[in-house]
């Protein structure tokens, strides 16, 4: 590096590459691009993901329950039960997603104030 005219030898480069790879595989250095993306992702975007997660679970369960009820003639009990389970499942999924992204945002020391 000190002599700009002379390129570093290939052995030197190889060594540095190996070092970088070793560090990468330990998981100590995270992909820079990804960190930027998770940080840059607006809170609005995250809110969208969570909303979709919750609504889908409730909708799928309710429609599935309604259909099962019609098939078995037990209206409205399966639908009610599945609706409640759907709400819980949706909340659980949203919670897990939020924790996941929260953890990712927390890892770099500076990016923890925005949510």
């Amino acid at each position: 590096m000190s002599d700009p005219d002379k390129p570093p030898s290939l052995e030197d480069l190889e060594g540095r590459l190996r070092q970088a790879r070793g560090k990468r595989d330990d998981g100590t250095s995270r992909g820079q691009a990804e960190r930027r993306l998770t940080e840059g992702k607006s809170s609005l975007g995250l809110a969208w993901q969570l909303g979709v997660e919750m609504i889908t679970a409730v909708a799928v369960c309710t429609v599935g329950g309604w259909w099962l009820d019609r098939w078995l003639g037990t209206r409205p009990w399966i639908m009610v039960a599945l609706f409640l389970l759907g709400v819980s499942a949706g909340t659980l999924n949203a919670y897990r997603l939020a924790m996941r992204f929260g953890r990712e945002a927390q890892e770099p020391p500076e990016g923890d104030e925005d949510r």
């Binding site: 889908t56 369960c61 819980s88 659980l92």
Partner: peptide, 23 residues
Amino acid sequence: ILVPIEIISYVVRPCSLSIRLFA
């Protein structure tokens, strides 16, 4: 209570994954 919730949250995944992109 927990097992049905976990199963539903697992089964619902393809739906939420696809609805997000499509919507």
